[in-house]
Design a protein around this nucleic acid. Sequence first.
DNA 1: CAGTATCCGATGCGATACTG
DNA 2: CAGTATCGCATCGGATACTG
Lengths: 254, 254
Amino acid sequence: MLIECSYLTVAGHTFWEILMSKKAQYGQYCPLAMSAEFLCNRWTLLVIRELLFGSTGFNEISRGVPRMSRTLLSTRLKELTDRGVVTRREKRVGGQVHYSLTSAGLALGPVVFSMAEWGQEWLEVEPAVQNVDVGFLMWDIHRNAVSMPELPSPFIVEFYLNNVPENKRTHWLVFEDDVVDLCHIDHGFSVHVQIEASIEDLTKAWMGWIDMSDAINTNKIIFKGPAKYTDIAITWLGSSSVAHIAKRVVAERI
Amino acid sequence: MLIECSYLTVAGHTFWEILMSKKAQYGQYCPLAMSAEFLCNRWTLLVIRELLFGSTGFNEISRGVPRMSRTLLSTRLKELTDRGVVTRREKRVGGQVHYSLTSAGLALGPVVFSMAEWGQEWLEVEPAVQNVDVGFLMWDIHRNAVSMPELPSPFIVEFYLNNVPENKRTHWLVFEDDVVDLCHIDHGFSVHVQIEASIEDLTKAWMGWIDMSDAINTNKIIFKGPAKYTDIAITWLGSSSVAHIAKRVVAERI
DNA sequence: CAGTATCCGATGCGATACTG
DNA sequence: CAGTATCGCATCGGATACTG
C-alpha cells in the first residue's frame, strides 16, 4: 500500500515527505525507536488496551479512557487505522461503527501486558489510588466479572461505595447467563449480595494490592448475603488481570 | 522511601502534592496507564535501551541517542534515578559517573524487547532507512560484533560506505582479545577485511531486512579479504538482536 | 568528562461548540 | 451514536552558551 502510493502527491508533497514531515522524532532505524515513535503518543497504548479487552464501539472505547477527549480519540483511531493496527467497519444500517484489531494490533498484546506487569510489580500506587474514577473502576470490574453455574440467573450484586459523592455511590452488576452488565440506576433489583467498601479499599483489593481476605476480616470490605454466594465471591467478582503479580518493595530496588 | 517522606514539605508543598502535580496524565490506577505515564515520555525507553545494552557513562549513553539533547538526557537520567530504575554512582577520583539499572530497571527488558520485536515484525522501514545516522549505525554494529578464536588478534575490519559524505566514509572495527573497538580515524591499520556498501544496504542487511547472501551475490555488499575470514563474516559481524524476526507484508494485516 | 541555565518556538492537546 | 471544527494555552524540549 505504502509502496504503491510513493509517488502520490498531495499539495505538492509526496507521500513520503508527508510521512517524514510528521516528525522523525528519534530518526533511528532501531525497531524500538520506530515502535516508540508510534506507540508512545499520549493515550495510544490505552486505546489499544481497550481494543484488546474487546471494546468495539467509539463510545465503548471512550468509556475506558474517560479523561481522553473525543477529538483525540478520533485522531488516534485514525492513526491506528492508517498504520494497519486497527480495522474500521461501518454497518450499512444505523451507521454503527465497529473497530477491531488487525493481526498487527493483536500482536501488541505482549507489549501491553509486559508494560502492565512491570507497572504492577514496580510502581508506587498511592497517587493513583487517591485519584480513582468511580465509573472507570466499576467498568473495569464489570469487564472481568464472570458468571458461574452455581449462581442464579439473574444474579444481582450491589456495590455501595461509602465515601464517594452520593450520586456515584451505588452500582449494580447483573449476571445473566454468560453476560455481565453494569448498571448505575436503581431498577428495584432484588439484590443477592451487597458489597460495601471505600473506593480506595475496593480498588486495592481488586488490583491485588491488599489481600481480599484481610480486607474482609478487618471490615474494610463487607459482603452481605447468603454464604453460598459470598463464599465464592472471589471467583465471580474476579480481579485485575495482573492482580496475581506481587508488588515489590522499595528496599528491593538495587 | 516514599512513605517516610510523605510529610516532607518543599516550598510549602508536601511530597505527595509535588508528585501529583507533575501531572496525572491519565489519572488511572491501571498499571498500564501508570507505566505508560512514566515510560512513554520522549526518549525514556531509548535511554533504557542503552542501559540494557550495557552503556554506563553519560557520554557513552549519549552516543546511543545522538539526536537527544544532553540537557534532556540529564533530566531523564534524574527521573529514572528518582523512580528507582537507575542507580547513579560517582567515583571519588576523576569524577567518573557510572549509571546502571536497578532490578526494577532490568525488569524493563521484556518491555523493551517486546516493543522492538513488534516494530521489527510490523513497521515499514523505508522512512527510517533514508535517515540513518552513520555514527549510530557503526556504534550499533560495533556493539554486536563478536571476537572469535579463529581470528588473529588484533583483527581489523574496514568499512567503506560509498555514498556518504567523505569525512564519514571510512570506519574500523578492531577485534582484540574479547574486546571490539570502533574507530573513525585512520591509524594506518593493516586491514584484514574490507567491507564496501551503501549505508542503506549495510543497514538493511544488518537489520535482517534483506538477506546478507543475496546482498553479497548482487554486489550490494562487497567483502574483500581472505576467504578464511570472509566465509565466517556473518559470525563476527553479528547482526541486530531482532534480525531473526521476519518482516510481515502489508497484505497480512487483516 | 559530566553536566546546568536560560531562552523561546513548535505542537500537542483539552475545552467547547457544532453536525449528520 | 459517532464523530468534526476551531481556538488557545501550557509544556515540552531543542539550541546555545556556560561551569567545575
